[in-house]
Design a protein around this nucleic acid. Structure first.
Lengths: 224, 224
DNA sequence: AGAAAATGAACGAACGTTCATCTACAATGA
DNA sequence: TCATTGTAGATGAACGTTCGTTCATTTTCT
């Protein structure tokens, strides 16, 4: 009762949590780098520890095990979508077509930055528990929500043709993932900007009503 | 020199090769079933042997090892494309749009039949040797050749809009693969026929010139 | 000094692969 | 027709390795 132990413990707790956060990110980064390159199954906990410059045992203080680590890496990518895509959409202004193009570009850019991790979602979903798989599936569906919203509003406003919104939003997402999935094929001829521009032009040629084509020359390009 | 030993040995050789062929297919089928369900890394050689009803050692008489087995499963799927797609295209007649729709449908049907094996291509490419990966990459590119040819001819004949042929053929292939990749998402609302019909309508709405739309009502559907 | 963080040798389980052994069967000779 | 023999086919216990995980011990920091 002489001093106030809580007033001293709180900053300690805070500092402790910060340190823990740092370590956690450090381990996650190392795991991501290796798993993205070689696939999660081919990466041993030993290798993750070495890449992070720590001992094996330490990983188990911050993650439950290998599956936890994989799940965390994947969730990290999906969270990048949840953060960056809405940002890009807002920055694009009010026009549905511009918003759509901005959203697609943002998806592609996130995919490009996490190119290998994006493939993990496909490659490793089977090595997760049922619970982990469901969590990822839900996050993926949530990830496509911005696209769906833009498309729905665009169609309702009559600025986009009356297409199957669910199907088109899924297709756009798949094409964004395509940059990672078939990167070995495209990298010989295209850089990201080309890929985004051409896919955007192609997609919009199926979505923008003929009477509005002239307004979006910069997105539709010469062809289409 | 009294009798002709070759005339007797040949049928033996033939019978031997037939038996070997059967065994090979039996093992391949077992491996495919398991790998498609659980991913190749999660399937042990022991499990493959049990599924096939043979012993572990026998697998090594027919395949060099686990990687060989995985490669064989994937090649099997890619060969299905090389066989069935050209067939379907020929059966579709001479109209480029009809041929395109038939090709896309054939891709989707093969994917549907080998749904899980198709995903293997994405999931397991990293667990193959450099040589195996290259072989698969080449086969995949060859696989898309029919689409490219149809598109090129259609564009040259003026029956299709002047689009980026390489990009569109790749997109169509990706959308066919999409049926397998995101099957968990679609199976709730669509069957294969719906998927094919809607994707076809969507794609053609970006490919068929406006003046020709009326001829392809049956493919374009009500929307688009 | 005491608590929290970090270590890494050790353990058990699982895996791919091998190989000594066994089996089934067709060819041979009587 | 029937025993014999040679061979390709098939077996599965055993081996060596790798990996995820644990925990007694040491280090670091306050």
């Amino acid at each position: 009762m002489s001093s106030t132990p809580l007033a001293e413990k709180d900053p300690h707790e805070a500092a402790r949590l910060t340190r823990a956060q740092r370590r956690s990110e450090q381990l996650l980064g190392a795991a991501a780098r290796l798993m993205e390159r070689d696939g999660s199954q081919a990466v041993s906990m030993q290798a993750v520890a070495e890449e992070a410059g720590v001992s094996v045992g330490l990983i188990y203080r911050y993650f439950g095990g290998k599956e936890d680590l994989l799940l965390a890496v994947i969730v990290d990518v999906l969270e990048a979508f949840a953060e960056r895509v809405p940002q890009a959409v807002e920055a694009a202004g009010g026009d549905p077509v511009e918003r759509l193009a901005a959203a697609f570009r943002a998806y592609c850019e996130v995919i490009d930055q996490h190119r290998h991790a994006a493939v993990l979602t496909y490659r490793e979903s089977k090595s997760l528990s049922e619970e982990g798989r469901r969590r990822i599936m839900e996050m993926e569906v949530a990830t496509s929500e911005p696209l769906r919203t833009i498309l729905r509003e665009g169609v309702e406003a009559g600025e986009l043709l009356d297409v199957d919104v669910d199907l088109v939003s899924y297709d756009l997402l798949l094409l964004a993932h395509g940059w990672a999935l078939k990167h070995w094929y495209f990298e010989r001829t295209l850089v990201l900007d080309d890929y985004v521009a051409r896919q955007t032009a192609l997609a919009l040629s199926a979505l923008v009503p003929p009477r509005r084509r002239r307004s979006y020359r910069h997105l539709l390009g010469q062809a289409g």
